[in-house]
Design a binder for these strands. Structure first.
Lengths: 226, 226, 226, 226
DNA sequence: CATGAATGAGCATTCATTCAT
DNA sequence: AATGAATGAATGCTCATTCAT
């Protein structure tokens, strides 16, 4: 019935950040295919986040993407590989962006605060945050997804945090030396914030930015000047 | 063929802590019914944890519980309410146990360490830890579960932690006064440990106990004597 | 809608020859299951014969058998194994009957005529004849069916015919000694008759009985008295 | 990837016997179209023989023919009419060849042996033999194919055989006068040989040539000289 | 109460056919 | 003419739920 349901008008997770001149018609074959594929990925992510892998219907994805059901199979082998590729496609640019840290000028705390700011803006409370929860939810049934996520995001993030922590210790900004062994502690409140937004936001709103600040105070000692 | 698969011999999550006289033969009607119900809950939890709500088949639950499929419907209205009741049934005794804190003798750090010890033993890396991940996974599709979990576990846990933090601040054990506004920070590494066990244990084992100790050092200042 | 579509009233291929007292109610669980299974086999055979394996819809089989689609899967793993088992179930009793030849009294020609008479009555122009054509049609795609058919029917039939031919040669009834090397020649017109009925009956009716008689005249020499 | 799979290099069934000057470049529009059509027919026959009508995918035909899927629809209305036309196109030249019998010099047996030799070389164990089996398989679902096959092949073949048999009877070569009423008996072993090759060759190889010789011995009396 | 055979709505996937390029 | 991306009806199979025994 409703052929083109306005194509998920919300800000695209997939394309955000791309700088290609979308204004131009640019409707050659390859472009159209890429657009459709992106629409499918976008729609699939919405549905998977909202319902989980097993409960998501390809019919709904197709409808939301504005394509026919069969079209999905022109781009993905089956539902499972769609899910797996989807995670890759969405995660990779985020990682790329987050790991492009500003040059190490200023204090370690400044660096970490910049990182946290990015995270707050790009992940917490966004579709991407929901995706993190989705990975937590489906990881055990999709080892390849868990593997990918560990390899591309977690291990890198842990390594980056460890490097910063060691720098902070060397410069005397961080007192607790054992922290370098558990960079997870540095990240934990941010992860909790992500999950909290998904599950409990309506029960008790959480000021993630303020919480992260308090957490950094705990690690670096309270700041004299805000 | 394999009709009665010996009912998942592992330590029951459901009954631990119950004090009903199981020793007695007690094969009256009511007892038998209660046993069956417990077996179903136990089996359902295993299956839901392993596959998620949507992908779990009642057939498998019945087989694991050693009952017929129809029997499940004598105890639960349908799959959804089974899941919802299941979470209640499993969560309640855990909460009861965790909140039965020892009397506030000794330092606040000692109290929190006792709590963390319990958590390490009873939750992290156990079936109950998996249940937490399951709630994170299915929460958005089961508002009643998320509501229940928030009300019974999260809000209580947060309140309890806040009380302890305030006590610690009052006694001078904790320096960071803002921490009382975000007890989540205190709990975050424990939650991360729970999730880490489920998803990344095989990629990189995590010494949760040691990590929690480091985290407490961060909050209370390093301990002079271990 | 049409719940019980009168269950293919035609003479059952599956049960024909059984002498169980169907008059009795006899509706215990096992009996009912066997009846349903038989109904499915019956219906499946009709559909497979009429449309071939690939073009047959399980929906139609179910409707014709008077059961729900899911019921089929209580009895057969999938469409393929249903087809394979079906051939076995239908073929076996036919083989049993045909190989129960009358005791070798009288001439070899009498024996073979008795056999041909059976074949005319039980196979040519019947559902079972159609099944033979179906096996010819689907054999290449179902090696297991071709294997089974060769092992249970063809090799036995060839061996039995060879024994009769050798007996006929020994007794001087058959002159052509090389015939023992190709019992297929003896059977060939009967097979042609089977196929002719399926394909060309409406173009040119074939008196199979008379044709087989002429063929035997060819082999044994013309009969003096019919 | 493998766009043009070199077009099934084996001897073409479709073109064999054609005398068009393929050597010339001859790339005008009409010729190119005819070549494509021939490639499609060739590919379609391979696929239909291998999988049967219903299980054959146009995709596979197109790939094998080295054309795009849509191109098939420039030559054929749909899958059904492609199958129907295909049978015509392939059968006609075979019939033409087989019915071009050598002038009736020598004995009737010689004529029939010449015919059998042709059949052995051109049909039994070849792609065309498979096509016969395909017609047997799909005939009931394609009355037009069965009609065509009966009209063009079967009725002509039967008439030709009958003429030969009557000649043989008249000349005293054939004793069994009733044979003229059932020319099918003359052809039956050849048909059985065709089917045997398709289905049971790997179970028990059949020397078709020798079998046909024995069959002729049966009809004509054993030959004095080989 | 307990059972498990039976049901049928629901869904992933396929593939003949169309049509814009 | 030729292409192949797109379509969507069709179909095999699953599984939550029911109910006669």
């Amino acid at each position: 019935m409703t052929k083109k349901p306005s194509k998920a008008a919300s800000a695209s997770v997939v394309h955000s950040g791309s700088h290609m001149p979308e204004a131009a018609p640019a409707s050659n074959r390859a472009t159209r295919a890429a657009e459709r594929r992106a629409a499918i990925v976008e729609a699939a992510m919405e549905e998977f986040i909202a319902r989980g892998f097993a409960a998501t219907r390809l019919d709904d994805i197709a409808r939301r993407a504005g394509v026919a059901k069969g079209t999905i199979y022109l781009h993905f082998k089956d539902k499972e590989s769609m899910f797996e590729e989807l995670v890759r496609v969405v995660i990779v640019p985020v990682v790329a962006r987050l790991t492009t840290l500003p040059p190490p000028v200023g204090s370690v705390r400044d660096l970490i605060e910049a990182f946290a700011g990015n995270f707050l803006k790009e992940v917490i409370g966004t579709r991407r945050g929901d995706l993190v929860r989705l990975i937590v939810a489906e990881g055990p049934r999709f080892p390849s997804v868990a593997d990918f996520y560990y390899r591309e995001v977690v291990s890198r993030g842990v390594a980056a945090m460890r490097a910063l922590i060691e720098l902070g210790i060397a410069r005397g900004e961080i007192r607790e030396k054992d922290l370098a062994r558990y960079p997870q502690i540095l990240i934990a409140p941010a992860m909790i914030a992500v999950i909290w937004q998904s599950l409990f936001e309506r029960h008790a709103p959480l000021d993630a930015r303020d919480m992260l600040r308090v957490h950094l105070d705990l690690i670096f000692g309270e700041r004299r000047t805000t």
